[in-house]
Design a protein around this nucleic acid. Structure first.
Lengths: 211, 211
DNA sequence: CGAGCGCTTGACCGGCGTCAACACCCGTGG
DNA sequence: CCACGGGTGTTGACGCCGGTCAAGCGCTCG
């Protein structure tokens, strides 16, 4: 699994609590902002958005987690979730009780190291979203998101989201997102792969990057 | 100190390396993005900005660290710094070798817990900057920054930065920042405390918040 | 006193937001 | 099988916010 992949037999012997393997449907809420935390999740399949509601009531998506990422890692320190987590697709995830992680991170140097790497990755990811996707013109932002969301196996393809969600990620209105995507298609930088406006092919990655 | 405040005598006995107490002048660079890391810093006095350069060469300030924050915490996991750190004021900071932290975090549950809290704080801070300060109108952003930068001891006063830096924090041009500050002063939401445009009084905190 | 830097202010313009109409897909139910 | 309706995406017209370019001001330091 994500966190336990390099544990040895002795480490596993210290896990006394069963670890749930859970499935959530599209739009299911894993937890709410500020909620008391029971455990931490590791994402096995699908995508999850982390959402904050701003002072004036609008929704802001701070980043999107992929398979292998830890959901709600902040609960390790405070036993509370700092953001809301919502399934962007049907997903499968493991829930690991906080007690298991607290015990193991103190007694297994391997898990300890792994957790530290997850913290670092989460922080870098947060900074990446701020520095790369929330800076510059609408065109640049949409292009950046398309590049970031390339499929792991087929890097020439990419999967986008509802225009509303993309707006909340990039700080743009949904009409602007739609217009910019249309413009990128018109300019030959994206090619639609379906009729729903979610999957696109990237014919020329460098050209997209150069914006 | 920031990380060692609740260690006991036994813990301290395990620190064999001297810990440097360093002073940096305004605009000094603590480290560069991607640089090999020797240690991690704790900020004792002053402010530090974390800077990323974007693909097209512009500077993006991802957040500002205050006294008590850890600078370059990501080096614990990767031995590299993910962002550039620059002193926004004259500062004093401690440099703690990575080896000391690696050893102690494995052998002192107290430091282990403290480090986890620092990771969580850094992540929450990153999300806060994205969700609160990089969303909405120019007016809202400038007001939000003024509120975030209130003095710890005198919450009715706040300290801002050069208009250029504020622009890099809020994704605005320096002229826009200047205009919005002028407008806030005109509307009585800010009162200048000096002639350099850095220190302001906040007569009515709620009114600023309500933007 | 003059040079230089940072801050402010003005005029103008372009990009993005706003509001609205329309197209398209896909349910449901007649 | 088709009619209908709602949700989502697209496109257009228009206005405003913020970017651009430029001038001027005030402080600091030689």
């Amino acid at each position: 699994m994500v966190l336990f992949s390099d544990l040895n037999e002795h480490d596993f012997g210290q896990i006394h609590t069963p670890i749930d393997d859970l499935a959530y449907a599209l739009d299911a809420v894993l937890f709410y902002e500020g909620e008391q935390a029971l455990g931490v999740f590791t994402l096995r399949k699908g995508l999850v958005k982390l959402v904050r509601s701003t002072a004036d009531g609008r929704e802001r998506i701070v980043r999107v987690l992929r398979p292998g990422d830890v959901i709600g890692i902040e609960a390790l320190a405070t036993s509370h979730y700092d953001t809301e987590a919502v399934a962007l697709t049907d997903i499968s995830a493991c829930r690991i009780p906080l007690s298991v992680l607290h015990h193991l991170s103190a007694h297994s140097p391997r898990l300890h190291l792994r957790l530290m790497q997850k913290w670092q990755h989460a922080l870098k990811d947060a900074d990446d979203w701020l520095a790369e996707l929330n800076f510059g013109s609408a065109r640049q932002r949409v292009a950046g998101l398309a590049l970031k969301m390339r499929d792991a196996e087929q890097p020439q393809n990419t999967t986008l989201f509802s225009r509303q969600d993309m707006g909340a990620m990039l700080d743009l209105k949904l009409e602007t997102v739609s217009r910019e995507i249309s413009a990128l298609v018109r300019d030959g930088l994206l090619e639609p792969l379906d009729k729903s406006g979610r999957r696109y092919r990237i014919p020329n990655e460098k050209k997209l990057l150069s914006l």
